[in-house]
Amino acid sequence: MAVPVVVFAGFVGLALVGMFREDPESLPSAREGQTAPPVVLDEFTGKPSFDDATLRDGTVKLVNYWASWCAPCRAEHPTLEALSAEGVPIYGVNYKDQQDNAEAFLNELGDPYTAIGRDEKGRMAIDWGLYGVPETYVIDGEGKIVLRFAGPLTSSVVEKTLRPAMEKAAGQ
């Protein structure tokens, strides 16, 4: 009889913790505060690529996972374009996509990426703990993940979540 009561109390405890989190909509990330996993990308023909050393070049940057087949990626694209126009370096990881489709997406909407690579099989995404696209990481100058944001970036997300994380990354 005691086991069901203990199990029920455990569920109630977990529910209470979930209800009082700072942002109940955010997904937790085990990678925050850790060095970014290795960058292992296929070439995106005609575009500059990036590697581990790029993530440790002393500057704050974003790593953005996206795909041409992803409707939320299309919705967030103007926000990425605006950040890029401000001079924010954004490194793109094209996730499980056909290169022709990805090129057409960028030709239509613009290319906000400083450099880009393809994660054709999704292996790098697994190592980074990707839940799905779009997903954006704030990386400090030493290559540490300061923030992982799952979902499309909007102007509100940029102001309330992304910019504070970028400021934190710059201050470390």
Rank of each mutant, 00 (worst) to 15 (best):
D51R: 09
Y95L: 07
Y65E: 00
A53R: 01
T114H: 05
L14C: 09
N94G: 04
K96S: 08
L80F: 04
F44Y: 08
P28S: 14
A75S: 10
K168C: 04
I139N: 06
T35W: 07
P24K: 14
E32D: 11
P4G: 05
A15S: 14
P134E: 11
P152Q: 15
L106I: 02
P72D: 02
D127I: 05
P78Q: 06
R21N: 13
T154S: 12
E142M: 09
E81H: 06
S49P: 00
D57K: 00
F8E: 05
G46D: 11
D100H: 05
S84I: 06
V60I: 09
S84Y: 08
K160P: 00
V12E: 01
A115W: 09
A102W: 04
L62H: 06
A75P: 00
G87D: 03
V5E: 14
R123K: 15
G129H: 07
V88I: 14
S156M: 10
V93G: 05
L106F: 01
I116C: 01
K144T: 14
R56T: 07
T59K: 14
P37T: 13
V93W: 05
P37W: 15
E167C: 01
A165G: 03
V7N: 04
A104E: 13
A115E: 12
S26Y: 11
N101F: 02
G13Y: 09
P28L: 09
E86S: 12
P134T: 08
Y91S: 04
F44P: 02
T136F: 10
G129V: 02
E108I: 00
R123N: 13
A36D: 11
V5T: 15
E22P: 01
Q98C: 03
V146L: 05
F44G: 02
A15L: 14
G18P: 04
G129A: 01
V17L: 14
V17N: 10
P48T: 02
G87W: 07
V93S: 08
Y137M: 13
R118E: 13
E167N: 14
L14H: 01
L153G: 07
G58F: 11
G10N: 03
